[in-house]
Design a protein around this nucleic acid. Structure first.
Lengths: 358, 358
DNA sequence: CGACCAAATGACAACATTGTCATTTCCCAT
DNA sequence: ATGGGAAATGACAATGTTGTCATTTGGTCG
C-alpha cells in the first residue's frame, strides 16, 4: 500500500505537505493541494492509522462493552431490544462526534475477569474512553481501567464513576400524575420485584406520588414481584388481581411494572370480564415498541429512555476526557423518559388538573 | 503510559525480550519471563497496538458494515431482529478466531458514497477484511475496496465477490416436502412479492417441489405479493383467501412467505371459521423467534439461517485472506436453514414418507 | 530595486514496536 | 578443562506518520 513518500514523490512535494493535505491544514496553496489530492487518488493512498496513532496518540476510537447483541439473540424473551437502543444511541452520538465505535460483546458482561480483559484490549488500542452498558438498571463492580475514562450506562458502581441512569422515580411519578389528572383516585401498583433497583425506586416513587396526590394507602394497593415470563408466577398474579377487583371499591387504574406485565394483565382483565380502559385503566412501563406492536389496544406507558441514555453517555465521556483525564465530578446523571399517552387510560373526570395547596 | 523500554529497564532485560514475553514466544527462560511479567503488571504496561501494527501489519481487526442495529431501532416493524442475528454470528466467529470486530452502522447501507467512505476508514485501520451484511436477500452494487478482502452476507453483486446466501429454494422445498410427507396434496402458496429475490426463488422452488411430488398446478395455487404490514394489502389477501377456500376442494395447507404473513393468515382463517391446524395447516418462513413468542399456536416454519450465515461469512473471509489477498474463487455459498416442526401442521395420513421412483 | 514579512514548504526527529541477525550463555559430551 | 551446539538474549534497523523548527517563496512597501 502507498505511503506518504509515494504520494510526495508523485506530487513533487515533501511528505510533510502530503500530511498537511491529508489533515486539512490551511497553509497549503490550492494548486499544491490539488496536485497532492490527485496523487492520493491515483495511488489509492490511505493514511496508516497505526502510524498516525503513534505520533498523535489520538485514536478517534470509543470502546463499548455491552451484551445487547448477544442477548438479543440468545435470550430475546427477557432482553428484548432494550440494550440495542443504548448501543444505537452511543453509535449515533459517536458518529456525530467523529469517533469510531468499537463494540465488545462477549455476552458475559458480569464476568469481572472477562471485562478486565476487554478493558486491556481497549487500552492497547488507545481508545479515548469506554462506555459500559448494563441490560438492567443495576449496581456493578467493575475493574477500573487506569488512565482511561469510563462511563457507565444503565448502571452505577457507587464509587464515583460517572454514570447515566434512567429516572425511574420520575417516570413512575409521571404515570401516577397522569392517572390522577384524568380523575383516578384508586390506583393499584403491580410492579417489579424488590430485588431490582428499578423495582425499589418505582415502588417508592409510586407511594410518594400517591401520597402527594392525597390518595390513601388503602386506595393504592401495591402488588410486587411477579415474573411475567413464568406461568406459576402469572397464576399467582391472576389470583391476587381477582381478589383485588372483588373489593367493594376496586381500583379504577393499574400501573404495571413493564409493558409485558401490562400485556399479560390486560389479558387477565379480559378473561375476568373487565374491559380496558372501560372498566380499568392500564399504564405500562418501558415503551417497548417491539412488544407494543403486537397489542390490540395501544398502551399508555412511560418511556425508558435507552436511546437518550446512550447519547448522554457519549457526551459525558467526551466531556470527561477533556479536562483531567480520569474519572471526575458529576457522578450520576438521570435521564427522564416521557409518558406516552395511548388509549389504555380512560378519563374519569372532565377536569384536567387538581388544584392543591402545597 | 509505560513502554517496552520502561518494562525492560525494570526487569533488567532488553526491549526485545519484553516483546518476546508479550507475544508468548517460546525462547524465553521461565525465570526471565516471570520477571518481565511482574514488571508489566507493576507498570500497567499495555502494548501499543498502533506501533505493533506498523511493524507486523496485522491489525487483528475485522470490519463489518451493517444496518442491523440502527434499523432494529428505527424500523423494528420491518427489520425486526434478522440483521442482528447476522451480526451475532459474525461476532461469535470473530471472537473464536481471535479477531476484534469493528462494526460500522451508519444506517444508509445502500448509499454507495457512504459505503465507500466506510471502506476507506477500514482501509486506514488496516482491517484484515470486511463483511457487508444486507437486511434482505438482494443484489447490491458496492464500490470494491482495493487490496482488502470483502465478503457479502445475505447479498451478492454478480461480479464474483464471495458471498454467503440463504438457500431459499432449498428451504421452501423443505416446507413442501414436509407437507407432502404428512399427507397434504392440495397446498396453497401465499408468498413474498416478485420484486424480492427471496420471493422469486421460493415461488419457483415451491412450483418445482410440488411438481416433483406429483401435485397438479390447480391443486397448488400461488398467491403473490402481499405486504403484511399494509392494511389494504391485507384486505386483498383476505378476499383472495376467502375465494380460495370456497372452492369445492380447498387447500389443506398453506405456505406463507414469512412468519408475520402466517400470523396474519391464521388470524384470517380463524375469522373465517377455519381452525389451524384442524381445517388448514400452515407453514411460515423465517423462524423469527422474536415474533413467534407472541403466537398462541406454535408455528411450523423454515429457519432463515442468519446466525449461521454470519459465521460462514467470517470463515470465508479468513480463508480468502490467506492465499492471494483479493477476491477469489468460490463465488457464492448457500446456507440451508432447517424446518422447525411445531404444531401448525396436521398429519393427514399415518404414513410417514411417500415411496417414489426417481 | 532591495528589504521585509507572511505564507508556503521542507528536513529531520520521534513515536513504540517487531524482524533480522549477532552475540552471549548454558549444558553436555569429549 | 574444552569445544560444540543449542538456547537465550541483545543491538539495531525499519515501519508511516506528525510535530518542531528551519528554509524558501512571493508579494508589498519604502
Amino acid at each position: 500500500m502507498a505511503t506518504v513518500f509515494d504520494v510526495a514523490k508523485l506530487a513533487g512535494v515533501s511528505i510533510k505537505t502530503v500530511s498537511r493535505v491529508v489533515n486539512d491544514e490551511p497553509t497549503v496553496k490550492p494548486a499544491t493541494r490539488h496536485r497532492v489530492q490527485q496523487a492520493i487518488e491515483k495511488l489509492d493512498y490511505r493514511p496508516h492509522s497505526g502510524a498516525r496513532l503513534m505520533r498523535s496518540s489520538k485514536s478517534g476510537i470509543v470502546g463499548m462493552i455491552s451484551d445487547a447483541v448477544s442477548s438479543a439473540v440468545e435470550d430475546p424473551l427477557n432482553a428484548g431490544l432494550s440494550g440495542i437502543h443504548i448501543v444505537r444511541g452511543v453509535q449515533e452520538a459517536c458518529r456525530e462526534a467523529g469517533k469510531i465505535l468499537m463494540i465488545a460483546d462477549e455476552g458475559a458482561i458480569d464476568d469481572r475477569a472477562g471485562v478486565a480483559k476487554l478493558l486491556r484490549t481497549f487500552e492497547s488500542h488507545r481508545v479515548e474512553g469506554v462506555i459500559y452498558a448494563a441490560p438492567l438498571h443495576m449496581q456493578v463492580a467493575l475493574p477500573l481501567p487506569k488512565g482511561l475514562p469510563l462511563v457507565l450506562a444503565n448502571c452505577f458502581d457507587g464509587l464515583g464513576t460517572p454514570c447515566v441512569l434512567p429516572d425511574d422515580a420520575g417516570g413512575q411519578a409521571l404515570a401516577v400524575e397522569h392517572l390522577v389528572a384524568t380523575g383516578h383516585r384508586r390506583i393499584a401498583y403491580v410492579g417489579l420485584g424488590d430485588e431490582l433497583v428499578a423495582g425499589r425506586l418505582r415502588r417508592d416513587a409510586f407511594r410518594r406520588a400517591c401520597r402527594e396526590a392525597g390518595l390513601s394507602e388503602t386506595a393504592t394497593p401495591i402488588l410486587i414481584g411477579f415474573d411475567a415470563t413464568s406461568e406459576t408466577s402469572l397464576d399467582n398474579l391472576r389470583k391476587s388481581l381477582a381478589r383485588l377487583f372483588k373489593r367493594t371499591s376496586p381500583p379504577t387504574a393499574v400501573c404495571f411494572g413493564n409493558d409485558l406485565m401490562a400485556m399479560r394483565g390486560i389479558e387477565m382483565f379480559e378473561r375476568m370480564g373487565l374491559g380496558v380502559p372501560g372498566d380499568v385503566s392500564v399504564v405500562g412501563y418501558d415503551n417497548d415498541e417491539n412488544l407494543l406492536r403486537y397489542l390490540k389496544r395501544p398502551l399508555t406507558t412511560v418511556t425508558l429512555p435507552y436511546h437518550e441514555m446512550g447519547r448522554a453517555a457519549v457526551s459525558t465521556l467526551l466531556q470527561h476526557r477533556a479536562p483531567g483525564g480520569g474519572r471526575a465530578s458529576a457522578a450520576s446523571q438521570l435521564v427522564r423518559g416521557g409518558l406516552v399517552e395511548r388509549s389504555s387510560v380512560q378519563s374519569l373526570a372532565p377536569k384536567r388538573t387538581t388544584t392543591q395547596a402545597t
